[in-house]
Write a protein that binds this DNA or RNA. Structure first.
Lengths: 154, 154
DNA sequence: CGGGGGTGGTTCGAATTCGAACTACACGGC
DNA sequence: GCCGTGTAGTTCGAATTCGAACCACCCCCG
């Protein structure tokens, strides 16, 4: 496999993936900024916290989930802390650990931004597909994610 | 549709898309940096030029294709020009126009970087899917892209 | 208990990106 | 021909991101 090019279908899939990813992330970011003063990375961060037990996560764990560097996460959490949407808390049991905690205000901000965000995701991706296509998309990309995660720290 | 949340499958598809996109772009960037001194955005830029007739494109057109801002493109083209991989050329017929042209060196850089890049794309996405899944992925994401492009300048 | 290697988080400087403002040129109507 | 509106590309300052260096702390092994 040391030199195989991509055939017609493979190329179409890959380029479509790349373009859609670029376009959709940009569109989401635009919408969030206009609509609630959040950026796409910030929205994703808040979402992960909201889904976590106790609405809190270790910094390192959060960085991993967001596919961001530790230093990048430090910056964003600081921004969100200034805005009052996130709070830092000591982690009991390891004095090095810091928990990022979603505040009441953060939850509200998420609640305000969610409908518009969802609308964009639906209009430009989800609602364009039927159930079979949706299931295939979920399966295939979950497999890709698993592979990427598994070979990440190798 | 003013408040519909995502069901199980929809959520799985969307989160997998987001994660895979983040992970894959990061992995590609790592590989390209180690392997040839290019970044992922630079590789994509050179690829678009290589595929264009005459290996050249108008700046505005290129920015649109890459889903980047015009100022961002100015920066990257300048970087690549310093490195000798791209050259700027006047556009005959509109004195405002500038063409970005792939140089011989740029073509060689692309040629050197391509095998490693392809390997990453295959290992983490393409080769994980069978022909049907691949075709579905291409179809669905092409449709999403078309929708995003169509509603872009609305 | 006392290092030594490893992990968690931050700080720092460099690179990249964006949008707004700006300059130069194009095009249509008067 | 000349002006007003619009487009192409660049410049500028601000925001975001990364990796490397750093400090504090954890855990294991002798």
């Amino acid at each position: 496999m040391t030199e195989r090019w991509l055939d017609e279908t493979e190329m179409r899939a890959w380029v479509a993936f790349l373009d859609t990813s670029n376009l959709l992330l940009r569109r989401i970011d635009q919408q969030l900024r206009e609509d609630g003063g959040l950026t796409q990375p910030q929205y994703e961060l808040l979402t992960r916290l909201a889904e976590a037990p106790g609405q809190r996560m270790r910094m390192a764990e959060l960085a991993l989930a967001l596919v961001a560097s530790r230093s990048g996460l430090t910056y964003q959490v600081s921004q969100l802390e200034k805005a009052g949407l996130v709070r830092r808390e000591a982690y009991t049991g390891d004095d090095r650990g810091i928990l990022a905690v979603l505040t009441e205000q953060g939850e509200q901000a998420l609640h305000r931004a969610a409908p518009g965000h969802l609308r964009v995701v639906r209009e430009n991706l989800i609602d364009l597909l039927d159930r079979d296509q949706l299931a295939t998309l979920a399966d295939t990309l979950s497999r890709a994610r698993a592979h990427l995660r598994a070979t990440g720290g190798a």
